[in-house]
Design a binder for these strands. Structure first.
Length: 188
DNA sequence: TTTGTGATGCACT
DNA sequence: GTGCATCACAAAA
């Protein structure tokens, strides 16, 4: 995991993040679900150009973009090339279970980090993390030993560009936010 | 099992 | 004023 990893198209980064372990201050787990967003498609925050909110999406690759969702939750993205980013949607909890359970107020491993808002609550991600470099503490990445089997599908919770198959998941994972339906599968 | 809706903040039109 | 890259819980079916 290095700077070059993020300096690519978000679709590639989103796919390659599946199976990677993400920890924040010692709490986290294996990334099992991601979505890619590019500046030239209307579902992306960057579609209409830079604003105060999405400014870090247009900065250096390898930084965190955090925004408030529906007034209640936080969502964590990894910035790739300018205007593109990967939304982290779900983790399989591995480390710091107690802290995450306490922050979430529940202990079910299937509900701990299975959704972008849940994941941020479990890891303690807030707007304070917006713009922070990913290749430095409190962030920590661990690559998988063997390449994971990946499935693809439509992105969730958007109303524009709904047909782009830019959602990626770990095949067979029970920790995703929603099942992958229809045609899936993919070669790395 | 699927569908509906309230809570809640703020960027953008 | 509108519309969310959501979640949790209730109600219908």
């Amino acid at each position: 995991m290095d700077q070059q990893f993020f300096d690519r198209a978000s679709v590639e980064v989103a796919r390659d993040l599946i199976g990677v372990e993400l920890d924040v201050c010692g709490a986290g787990g294996v990334i099992v679900e991601t979505e890619a967003y590019e500046p030239d498609e209307p579902a992306s925050h960057s579609f209409r150009g830079p604003t105060q909110r999405n400014a870090v999406m247009f900065g250096q690759p390898g930084h965190a973009y955090v925004y408030r969702s529906y007034g209640i939750h936080w969502c964590l993205n990894f910035v790739c090339r300018p205007g593109s980013a990967v939304l982290i949607r779900a983790l399989q909890p591995v480390r710091g279970l107690e802290v995450m359970e306490k922050r979430r107020g529940l202990a079910d491993p299937l509900l701990l980090c299975s959704g972008p808002g849940r994941l941020c609550q479990a890891l303690g991600i807030t707007i304070a993390h917006n713009g922070l470099p990913l290749l430095a503490p409190p962030f920590e990445f661990t690559s998988p030993n063997t390449p994971p089997l990946i499935v693809t599908g439509r992105r969730i919770g958007i109303s524009q560009a709904v047909d782009l198959p830019w959602r990626f998941g770990l095949s067979g994972s029970l920790h995703i936010s929603r099942k992958f339906t229809g045609k899936g599968g993919l070669a790395p």
